[in-house]
Design a protein around this nucleic acid. Structure first.
Lengths: 202, 202
DNA sequence: ACATCCCTCTGACATTTGTCATACGGAGTG
DNA sequence: CACTCCGTATGACAAATGTCAGAGGGATGT
């Protein structure tokens, strides 16, 4: 039984190389390739692959967003996310979106082929190390608003701008930032942003 | 004439796939692979390749650092940097370190093989788009100290800590930050850090 | 010799952030 | 119903940051 694959990665070099390697496996066949999120979606619609191997970061829409749409449109298509930067939060988001597999790019092609088969068989596979990280990072202690405000603060915007963009009063914004900072044990909003990013909470 | 290659990339999947693809070219042969900077250096010493294909971001020491050491120890070995994130400053640093080629991972394997040959022949190759970015980004307007202080401010440390780490008075640190911020046209130190990072000035 | 730049510092001031207390309405829970 | 969160807000105060003017010393270039 052959497994029909969709391969999506914005790096042509990687995608091509990966395609070549996976094609060496007798039971795997690549039916489509894509370089962006929307393209991946279009390709999936056109070819209805058994398994979609998606890079986490792509222009247009990231792997998790694509996965969400895919779940709705092609329930028979299993999604496997491959990523360079394994942040705990990404894994959580991905699983919530119905992704069946999540692996770092540090695995070998051999392993990847096995994992593709695992996912195709309807099982799940999550890289043990990433899983451990996700568990030890735990749940976000931030409320929805706190996370939102922290996110808006991420690029160094002043309180006034955050307040405007979030349609809140400046005082409220400062309250949220303050509580986020203390919950994260940070010294100021900027280290708080960094910590939250590392744990994948924003 | 065959070209003997060293391949260094921390992502096993990518490295393996790349190796497989490049091995298809008759005149290219991979004599060594490495997953970290130090490992790349050790491998280069052991195998004295003609061309070293290095990922820009690797654990241990980045591609440019490895290139610098390589220039000194193995002048006959040409260095080609491959990267996902093409920041202008990286290109500049790389060229200063004697790197002969600089390409994004979006090129095809076919192109990469050609570029490897170009570099091996003693010519240079820089991706046109990255080159354009680097030129438009221009030179850093920051003085050495300003850049240093800005770098220390990058992870959100308070002025007191920056001052201590740079062995400067707090007032001086604030002066440098202030002038860096105004030179970069930023609103505050944090957006300044972001801007400088984007242009590769830190 | 002079001008110009960078590095370093100080002191003063305005602005922005961070913290805290307090308040009110809504949602959910016991 | 009382209790506890969360979201939202205000006001006040302390601390950090941003800005400016000025000043001395070293290096470099004309």
């Amino acid at each position: 039984m052959t497994v029909r694959l969709l391969l999506a990665d914005d790096e042509h070099l990687i995608r091509g190389a990966l395609a070549a390697l996976l094609a060496l496996e007798d039971d795997l066949v690549i039916v489509a390739e894509a370089a962006t999120g929307p393209e991946a979606l279009a390709m999936a619609r056109a070819h209805a692959p058994d398994v979609a191997v998606l890079d986490l970061q792509m222009p247009g829409a990231d792997g998790v967003k694509v996965a969400t749409s895919l779940r709705a449109e092609l329930p028979g298509c299993q999604v496997l996310i491959v990523t360079s930067h394994g942040r705990p939060g990404h894994l959580k988001r991905a699983l919530a979106a119905g992704v069946r597999g999540f692996v770092p790019k540090t695995v070998s092609a051999q392993r990847l082929a096995e994992i593709i088969r695992t996912v195709h068989a309807g099982n799940r596979y999550v890289d043990p190390e990433l899983a451990a990280d996700a568990i030890s990072a735990g749940d976000s202690p931030l409320t929805a608003r706190e996370a939102e405000v922290l996110e808006l603060a991420a690029d160094g915007a002043p309180v006034a701008e955050i307040a405007e963009r979030a349609a809140l009063s400046q005082g409220t914004v400062r309250n949220y930032l303050s509580s986020a900072v203390s919950k994260l044990g940070a010294e100021n909003r900027h280290t708080a942003v960094r910590l939250a990013r590392e744990r994948g909470w924003v």
